[in-house]
């Protein structure tokens, strides 16, 4: 337990040491999204579900902050450790692999949740200023569930990719060609109902779509998929990515770049 606690403490201390880069910067970008899309352009966007676009956008941005930062936290922790060489310390110490996976996973949940919560608070301020009311939280339990499961899933993906990556380019390629399209086509900014049928079908294969909509349901009480489907798919994604993360530790390299 001490080993696990140490690993988790290290993860949290690491991102706390570079708070501008890890927390403040994502919040600034979320605030800009809110300002440009939610406030400026939001008035011209019509949704079928009766919500103002800003109300619709805030949960999506929160999940984007959660998943991006969970991924960044675990992947950058591993990549910087590969550069510095201290990943070798984890290999030569008597640490079971699943301790590393869980500690980095929870480190991702902490950072991701922190960014998501602050994004939510900034969003609430915009919401109150624009619409004169606070954004609702209809199902707090499910909100916590999606925080946890979304953060873990993307932190596990970060571990998997960073351990198997042989260069920084490979990691960047994954972010650009996989993570970014999944995020943007997962329903952060738009409802699936606004998409052409082909994109609607494709979105149903995107695990992030279920995560975003599950989270949106927990806040607004409405989403493009029903709650239990979102819960089931996101849980399955977490289990699969956990297995992949453990696999990457067994097969990937702890050696320095």
């Amino acid at each position: 337990m001490i080993i696990f606690y140490t690993l988790l403490r290290r993860e949290i201390k690491r991102f706390a040491k570079v708070v501008i880069q890890t927390v403040v910067s994502p919040i600034v970008s979320s605030a800009l999204y809110l300002l440009v899309f939610g406030v400026s352009l939001g008035g011209s966007v019509q949704l079928n579900n009766g919500f103002a676009y800003l109300t619709f956008l805030i949960p999506g941005l929160m999940v984007m902050g959660l998943t991006n930062n969970a991924f960044q936290n675990s992947s950058s922790s591993i990549v910087t450790s590969k550069f510095s060489g201290d990943l070798e310390d984890l290999r030569v110490a008597p640490i079971p692999h699943y301790y590393i996976v869980w500690a980095m996973g929870l480190g991702g949940v902490f950072r991701g949740s922190l960014v998501a919560i602050i994004t939510g608070l900034v969003g609430t301020a915009f919401h109150y200023a624009q619409l004169g009311k606070l954004i609702p939280i209809e199902h707090p339990f499910w909100m916590l569930y999606f925080f946890m499961i979304g953060g873990l899933t993307f932190a596990f993906i970060g571990i998997f990719v960073a351990f198997l990556a042989r260069s920084f380019d490979q990691l960047s390629a994954f972010t650009a060609f996989v993570l970014l399209p999944l995020t943007y086509l997962g329903g952060v900014f738009i409802s699936i109902q606004n998409l052409a049928p082909i994109w609607q079908t494709l979105s149903k294969f995107n695990p992030l779509f279920y995560l975003i909509n599950g989270f949106r349901y927990s806040m607004l009480g409405q989403a493009d998929v029903d709650l239990m489907t979102a819960v089931g798919v996101s849980l399955l994604a977490a289990v699969i990515t956990f297995i992949l993360a453990n696999y990457s530790l067994a097969k990937g390299s702890f050696s320095r770049w």
Partner: peptide, 25 residues
């Protein structure tokens, strides 16, 4: 190890504290 480890984030005392934790101390 032969190559020097350059952990950028932590101080000497923190590094030794974490290292102890990796061994369950």
């Amino acid at each position: 190890h032969q190559e020097v480890i350059n952990t950028g984030y932590f101080s000497v005392a923190e590094i030794l504290d974490f290292q102890s934790g990796y061994y369950g101390l």
